[in-house]
Design a protein around this nucleic acid. Structure first.
Lengths: 241, 241
DNA sequence: ACAAAAGTGTTGTGCGTACACCCATGC
DNA sequence: GCATGGGTGTACGCACAACACTTTTGT
């Protein structure tokens, strides 16, 4: 350890988290009012500064923990943002992460104590700096990722019904899906275990609970098989004439 | 501008570039021997430190220019790496970029003057720090990206033949493709303009040159149509029994 | 004339899509 | 008994994969 690079510039590194949740049939973001200058009081992503003693992931998890009280959250690095003047205060690099949260299990009170609110993805206000750009990118990434990775379950409780799952896919992709085709496709993966129990909140008949079988998924993944839940047909470039 | 964040830590930010090229039917990387401590003399990606006055992209382009003499290179941000001890010298964040280069047009002498070498992707040596991890990730990302974005052309000269293009796809995906199906699929996009001229280096008959029509692609993209050149059939998780 | 690479069409089938009715239950 | 959401099967068409022979030309 030493002074190898002492002639080089050093930079503040912020970690900003785009936190997705799913509630009442809508995809939501956890946003808050910034509590310090500059831009105090404006809407913002949850963020903080990287410390010397922590890795990027550790830092992001620390920040998530502060806001939500949750550990063990699904989280991925999104992108780094480094325009020279992106932060009007001082030159700051931001490394953005996105996280998927089970809103039901979340301690809403803790979030609210931090001045955080769940806001529908369709009603995101103007955020500070380049945070709106980050949200856009995160949403795009989520939409792409959910096709090839079974991460939708991270947004639902451990037990969920197929109508709930379908409603999640519809909220993320902003389009209606055919019930029969959706069920067929998701069930033929063999990754969902049907429970005996029914959820009876939203219908008289009740819908059976299912659970995602992580073990099975890991097995298949190791064998080189991929999850796929394609939902909308891409409009492809084709000269048909 | 001021001292808003003065209690926070500041960090060295490195920019490391994974530079892909395509030559002699092989996908290659531009690698070099590190010229300063720590780890002087070991194989490494091209990198440098972010300056206060430049954005991340600008920094990455500056570094690419130094090594290759090229501007106007296709480049994308890959990922940031920030394990506390990833650099044994000092705590350094690295933001990795990958770039696609037309080797033919490149000034090889300049690259060699910097001690850089084109090395087949199948023969990448042990690199310093976490650079091998970066290469792995970049390769995966390239493989994914080339399916949905017409970026393969960035690795070929402006004029190229269909056998060359097919050979590129084969090199990236490490698998043989059917000539007829490949041609059919790539031509039916309507994005390739056939030239009158033939390339006669690698066969007696000669293969017609084509050019990628960027204008047409941009038009289609704006209209919401997507490029797709799927090449290998995914092994999907399915319970067939 | 022959070797070496370029170029060209057709057929079968598996997968995705479209679509309508019965079921269970609470009120 | 009726309203509400849950659950189920099939038929059609298209897009993808498999496959073999002819053409050109340099030597």
């Amino acid at each position: 350890m030493g002074a190898f690079y002492q002639d080089e510039d050093r930079h503040y590194v912020a970690l900003d988290c785009i936190i997705f949740g799913f509630d009442a049939g809508e995809l939501k973001l956890l946003l808050l009012k910034r509590k310090f200058e500059p831009a105090k009081g404006e809407w913002s992503l949850m963020g903080g500064f990287l410390k010397n003693y922590e890795s990027l992931d550790e830092g992001a998890r620390r920040i998530l923990l502060q806001l939500t009280g949750l550990t063990n959250i699904y989280m991925e690095q999104l992108q780094s943002y480094g325009d020279v003047n992106r932060d009007p205060g001082e030159r700051t690099i931001s490394i953005a992460f996105y996280a998927l949260i089970k809103v039901d299990e979340n301690d809403r009170k803790l979030a609210e104590a931090h001045g955080a609110h769940w806001i529908s993805i369709n009603k995101v206000p103007t955020l500070i700096f380049d945070h709106n750009k980050m949200v856009e990118k995160a949403l795009k990434t989520l939409r792409n990722k959910i096709v090839t990775k079974p991460i939708g379950f991270e947004l639902l409780s451990e037990k969920f019904t197929l109508p709930q799952l379908q409603s999640l896919y519809e909220a993320i992709n902003q389009e209606q899906l055919d019930k029969r085709n959706f069920r067929k496709r998701i069930l033929e993966t063999g990754l969902l275990d049907k429970m005996d129990e029914k959820e009876k909140g939203s219908s008289k008949k009740g819908a059976f609970y299912y659970m995602f079988n992580k073990e099975k998924y890991r097995m298949f993944a190791e064998m080189g098989f991929h999850f796929q839940m394609k939902v909308k047909k891409d409009a492809l470039i084709k000269m048909n004439t």
